[in-house]
């Protein structure tokens, strides 16, 4: 594994540890319902401060069950992850394609140069050297 990959894996491991630690250390144990959403807690806090407050609008569509809701959340994550993966895959493919094209050119140029060296006029050798110079 290259150093680069190691650093990337390490970053992911730290993120995973940050997510797992609160669960492993039981930091939600003091609550009636551990690890609920902060937005739900804020709703409770609002009703504590202003017991008469009634939400004056309700969502147009509400997922009918927790399963549907978690499904839609994973859809959101999957869409995002799909686009990100497409981006990096495309970039990698392009980079490899460019590299291969360069290698092919270099091989072709080397072949030309060899055959050109045998030739007294060595026209093709000169031409490919020129094109190499242009590229670099």
């Amino acid at each position: 594994m290259s150093r680069n990959t190691k650093v990337n894996v390490l970053l992911l491991l730290v993120v995973a540890a940050l997510a797992v630690l609160p669960l492993a250390l039981g930091l939600g144990d003091h609550k009636e319902e551990p690890f609920t959403g902060a937005d739900g807690e804020a709703e409770t806090a609002i009703t504590e401060i202003e017991p008469d407050y009634e939400p004056w609008f309700s969502p147009l569509y509400e997922p009918p069950s927790g399963e549907i809701e978690s499904g839609l959340f994973s859809l959101q994550a999957a869409l995002g992850a799909g686009v990100l993966a497409y981006y990096f895959g495309l970039r990698r493919g392009r980079r490899q394609g460019e590299q291969r094209a360069r290698e092919r050119d270099a091989e072709g140029a080397a072949g030309d140069a060899e055959s050109g060296a045998g030739d007294a006029e060595s026209v093709s050798g000169d031409a490919s050297e020129e094109s190499m110079a242009e590229r670099s």
């Binding site: 940050l18 997510a19 609160p22 930091l27 939600g28 609550k31 551990p34 690890f35 609920t36 902060a38």
Partner: peptide, 9 residues
């Protein structure tokens, strides 16, 4: 994600 406060965000 779970957090140190025992709730999620």
């Amino acid at each position: 994600l779970p957090s140190v406060t025992g709730s999620c965000s």
